[in-house]
Every structure is written in structure tokens, then in C-alpha cells.
Design a protein around this nucleic acid. Structure first.
Lengths: 233, 233
DNA sequence: CAGTGGTCTAGACCACAGG
DNA sequence: CTGTGGTCTAGACCACTGG
């Protein structure tokens, strides 16, 4: 069923992976060098290099100059998650998306937030709280701070029609960010709009976004009870 | 402070990223083709290809044959997490690691588990429950099913000294797997060994591991209250 | 059909770190 | 010092797909 792999570097990658799984090259073993493998596989060294590099990126191989390439002793699992725009995530599940702005106000964030964003302790930020609905059922609650020093245009944007989630992506480029996953217990302020019990266990994403040296936005998203984030290894 | 980038493909990647952030190539815009960029940057097309490929992998670019390379309209954030062996994770935080086996029994898993693992409904599995301690405080609770048809050696392994986590990694290769993150509410069976309140909100990882067409193990790990999983974007 | 990205090659030079 | 991976090049052919 699966189409045969035509690309040579993928064949090499698969063959190497195969040998590792077959214990031909057990964990910790030193593999032949690139030039020898290229000869054996009848291809250019560049091709072997690409294959081995891709395996090293997944953590299966450990490569060092002069020391050579070794099979990792304890491969560290690397899981890559895609964090799509909320609208797309919901529509991809075949549900209808709706965005509801709960509150919008300019204020000075609490000290902990200001520190995390690295903006002055008296800096004005725009705070937005919004619900993302899937088929009219609350799917996620978003609690966001937007740094007005970095994004002055946000002051004039109502965010009633378009979610801050999407608006920021369109308007403001970002250079880097940090993200954290955790589990939190629903407080009243969260449980009431979400329609879940107080104390319910909610999957939570915290995300901080920067543009150069300036924090753009900090957002915490609470997902409805039972929400899971999946991926393949 | 940061060492200058010597590799040309990284310079090209950074320059392209720069232009995108500067709106020189706004979202949706069509970029010049590889050959033209190679001329402009004074390098081989291969080098440009590697730079653009790396940007496409992070979701910033959208590349299609004949259609060319475009800046993504809504870059999908991709977060990569490393899921290390529990021992290393704890020791990396400067804490002392200890593994405690709570129970070990051979039995037939519940239907839902058997289905998820794709083993026959009457298949014998080894069930292990264990605590991972950090400085003698419960750090995570592991609830695992090991498919004895795939790993018969596990029947004779006590798992008192070495955790199943590490033993399986050493003994059994795997070809692929699935992983899911969620938030669960601590039942009594979890809360008591973990020393947290019943109903506490716990970050939870479910992981299913396969070797070829055979399920090797299914594990659910509950982390102590407040646990976070971090990464950079 | 034809333009674009995807890949492969043979050869070269270099940075790094082991011995 | 020397072997190894990391990178770069110039050129080539190919697969895919938009027009």
C-alpha cells in the first residue's frame, strides 16, 4: 500500500534504522564512517550524511567529529507538536468555530506577569479574556496580556470579530517564544465561563511571544476537561 | 557574546527570516526561486535549498514545486519536547533519583487497554505500578502494561532495582509510538501513593510503543501537582 | 508543457576533538 | 597530528504540478 521510497537518502536512513533495530549495531556501538557507508551503499557521502543527520536529529544516533557515529544508549524521545490557530484546530475536527470576547481592558499587569514579559512594572497592557467555542460548546478559555508598547495598534482593535489569536499572527511578526504545558485546577473565574465544575482538571498552555528584545504577548489557554494533545513519535 | 555564524546556509536562513520579519516578504508573498536567491547570495543553489528547507520545516515557509516558495499566512507553531528517561530528568534538576515498585502482576488487561495495544482480548500482560522519587518526594507515578507476547523476558525481570522505563529502553527496540498529553484528576489510587489530595489536577502523559506490528508497552504517567513541560519555539 | 523544488554526485576544504 | 563529520560547490537529472 505504501508507496516505495524513491529517495536514496531515505533508503539509507531506513536501512541504518533497520540494522539498529536488528541489533546489528547495538546501543553504544560505533558505526562505520560516512565514507565507508557511502561505498557500501553505492552512493555519495553527501547522501549518507543526510541520512545519518536525520537520524541524529531524532536522537537515535550520537555523532561527534573524529569520534565517529554511535548508536545512542538511551534514545531521548522527541515529540513534536503542532500548535495551530484555534479556529483551524476546531474546524479540523469538523466543528463550527465561534469566538466570544468576555472582557477587554487596559491595565497594569500584576508584578509576576510584568516580570515574565520583561516590561516595566508600570507598563500598560491590554488584557483580553475570550472563549473559543466548538459547535457552541466552550472549547477553550484564553487569558491574554498584550504589550501595548510593542503593539500600539492593539489599543484600537475591538477583538470582537477576530480573535487576538489570529489578529496578532497577521499583524505582528515574532522572532521567538516559549511554551509550557501543565495541568491546572479550574478556579471559579475559569469554571463559570467554561461550564465545568470548580476544581476540574484542565489542560493548560502558557505561551510567551517575543519580537527581538520586546515581549509581544503572554497568553494562558485553558482547555475543556478531557482535552488531549496527540502526536506520533 | 553569541559566536558569529560561520555556516553559509545558516546565514542565508537568517537573512531570509530577517526579511520576512521586516515585511519585505509579507505573509503570503511569493519569494524568488532558489536559483535567483543563490545568485543574489553568491552561493550554490544547494545551500539556498538547505536554508529554505529548514525554514519550511519550522512552518515559516510553504514550498511547492512549480508554485514556488511562499511565506506562510499563519505560521503553525511547532513545539518539540524532549521526553527523557525519568532518572535523567530528575538528576538534571539536581535531585536524587529513586525508583519504587508498588505492584507487579501478570493479568489480562481491561478491554479498552487491550484494544489500544492491539493484542488479543485474552492476552497476558505484565502490569507494573511504580513511583519515581526526586529527593524522596514522589515525582511521578507510572502505570504500565507490558505485552508479554512481545517481551517474554519481562516475565522474569523483578523491576525492583531498575525501572521498567529504563529496562525496556535497553532491551527492546521500538519502531514507532504515539504520545498524548492531558490533565487528569487524581483518583484515590493515584492520590495516596503520590501524597496529593484526591481530585488534584495532574499533568499526564500517555505513551504507546510499537515494534513493527506488535505493541510493546502502554504506559500512563502522572506527574506531581504543578509539574510543567517547557520548550522554546 | 515547462518552471520549480527535490535530490544526487564527485570532489574539495575546513573545524573540531581524540590520541 | 590525523581522522571524522560538517559544509560548500557546480552541475545534473528528475518529480511534481500549475498554467
Amino acid at each position: 500500500m505504501t508507496a516505495p521510497i524513491r529517495q536514496k537518502w531515505q533508503s539509507v536512513r531506513d536501512e541504518v534504522r533497520q540494522r539498529i533495530h536488528a541489533r546489528e549495531w547495538p546501543p553504544g556501538a560505533l558505526m562505520p564512517n560516512e565514507a565507508d557507508l557511502a561505498t557500501e551503499f553505492g552512493c555519495a557521502r553527501t547522501t549518507v550524511n543526510r541520512a545519518l543527520r536525520s537520524l541524529a536529529e531524532t536522537g537515535l544516533l550520537d555523532r561527534r567529529r573524529k569520534a565517529g557515529t554511535r548508536v545512542a544508549q538511551q534514545p531521548v524521545a522527541k515529540a513534536t507538536f503542532e500548535i495551530p490557530v484555534m479556529r483551524k484546530e476546531i474546524e479540523a475536527r469538523g466543528k463550527r468555530y465561534r469566538h466570544e470576547l468576555l472582557s477587554r481592558a487596559v491595565s497594569v499587569p500584576p508584578a509576576a506577569t510584568a516580570v515574565a514579559m520583561g516590561c516595566g512594572s508600570g507598563a500598560k497592557c491590554l488584557r483580553l479574556r475570550a472563549l473559543h467555542h466548538a459547535d457552541e460548546r466552550p472549547y477553550a478559555l484564553e487569558d491574554r496580556w498584550v504589550n501595548l508598547a510593542a503593539v500600539p495598534e492593539a489599543r484600537n482593535e475591538p477583538f470582537s470579530e477576530i480573535s487576538a489569536n489570529e489578529w496578532l499572527l497577521m499583524q505582528v511578526p515574532y522572532t521567538h517564544g516559549a511554551i509550557a504545558f501543565s495541568a491546572t485546577s479550574a478556579s471559579n473565574a475559569v469554571a463559570i465561563p467554561m461550564g465545568c465544575k470548580n476544581g476540574a482538571s484542565l489542560f493548560t498552555i502558557d505561551r510567551l511571544t517575543w519580537n527581538k528584545a520586546e515581549a509581544v504577548t503572554k497568553v494562558r489557554i485553558f482547555f475543556q476537561e478531557g482535552h488531549q494533545l496527540h502526536t506520533l513519535l
